[in-house]
Computed example of a mutant assay.
Amino acid sequence: MCGRFALTEPAARLEEFLDVVDVEEFPPRYNIAPTQPILVIISGDRQGPGSNLPERKAMLVRWGLTPSWVKDPREFPLLINARAETAIDKASFRAAMRHRRILVPASGFYEWHRPPKETGEKSQAYWIRPRNGRLVAFAGLMETWSSADGSEVDTGAFLTTRSNAAIGRIHDRMPVVIRPEDFGRWLDCRTQEPREVVDLLAPVEDDFFEAIPVSDKVNKVANVDPDVQEPLAGALAAPSASTKRSISGDDSGQLSLL
């Protein structure tokens, strides 16, 4: 599952990591929430210099995918996540998997461990980031929804997969990580059909991320300062492997974290 994430790197760092130009400079964002604009990378129309692959472009989309065939988005659920295991066949994501695969750069994401109610324990938020402190690119999907008056809204969602052993102690789902060497193949919707990139949708290795317990400040969208990522003194780094965790993911990608 992915219901909040952060992107705090400067534009120059993003351009280097993603091999893209003209990323607009923006302030660090420590608590990005659904329905807000998010930076994504798409495959462009022209081939890049010295390459047989299209150059990449950066753009903003609304977090919450709306399929093009939806008549009224107000009557359609907010799809912030899509299950990688079923996206190829789901009506809401099938076209995007074939034609509009994207990358979502991030500094990390937030997840909540929710113990069973009978334990009486409180939910614990975690700031989950790459151990090397670098950027990460998550797999995503994009759709452009057009209203009756001709206006258009670009929308997007994360792809999630089953958690690896480390993140599985917190939650049963996690975003799909795309490695830099696989950026081109994932974005190449012209020659790479969905069935040819499914190998990229597996959980990342167990030691890729570190999970840092943080306060419940991140629960509120209005809290956007760096202190939402401050380690929570006295909290465990992660629940033990034997601790039962609640299952809150679903195929629809509904916002079920808050």
Rank of each mutant, 00 (worst) to 15 (best):
residue 109 F to R: 00
residue 95 A to E: 15
residue 119 T to V: 07
residue 91 A to Q: 15
residue 95 A to Y: 11
residue 121 E to C: 09
residue 106 A to F: 00
residue 92 S to E: 06
residue 108 G to R: 02
residue 87 A to L: 07
residue 86 T to Y: 00
residue 96 A to T: 07
residue 89 D to C: 12
residue 117 K to M: 14
residue 93 F to D: 01
residue 128 I to Y: 15
residue 104 V to F: 06
residue 110 Y to Q: 02
residue 124 Q to G: 03
residue 97 M to V: 07
residue 112 W to Y: 10
residue 89 D to L: 11
residue 118 E to D: 13
residue 91 A to M: 05
residue 128 I to W: 14
residue 98 R to D: 14
residue 113 H to R: 10
residue 109 F to D: 00
residue 108 G to I: 00
residue 109 F to T: 04
residue 126 Y to E: 11
residue 118 E to H: 12
residue 96 A to Y: 04
residue 92 S to D: 03
residue 114 R to S: 11
residue 88 I to A: 13
residue 115 P to R: 04
residue 99 H to D: 12
residue 115 P to Y: 02
residue 119 T to G: 07
residue 106 A to P: 03
residue 99 H to R: 06
residue 116 P to C: 08
residue 120 G to W: 00
residue 127 W to C: 12
residue 101 R to L: 05
residue 87 A to N: 03
residue 111 E to I: 10
residue 113 H to N: 12
residue 100 R to M: 09
residue 124 Q to N: 06
residue 93 F to H: 04
residue 90 K to M: 13
residue 93 F to P: 02
residue 87 A to T: 07
residue 119 T to M: 11
residue 112 W to G: 05
residue 99 H to Q: 10
residue 105 P to L: 08
residue 117 K to L: 14
residue 121 E to Y: 08
residue 99 H to P: 00
residue 119 T to F: 07
residue 92 S to P: 08
residue 126 Y to L: 08
residue 120 G to E: 02
residue 127 W to I: 05
residue 114 R to L: 04
residue 122 K to N: 13
residue 120 G to Q: 00
residue 125 A to S: 14
residue 128 I to H: 10
residue 105 P to M: 09
residue 86 T to P: 01
residue 128 I to K: 10
residue 104 V to I: 15
residue 103 L to Y: 08
residue 100 R to N: 12
residue 119 T to H: 09
residue 91 A to V: 13
residue 87 A to V: 04
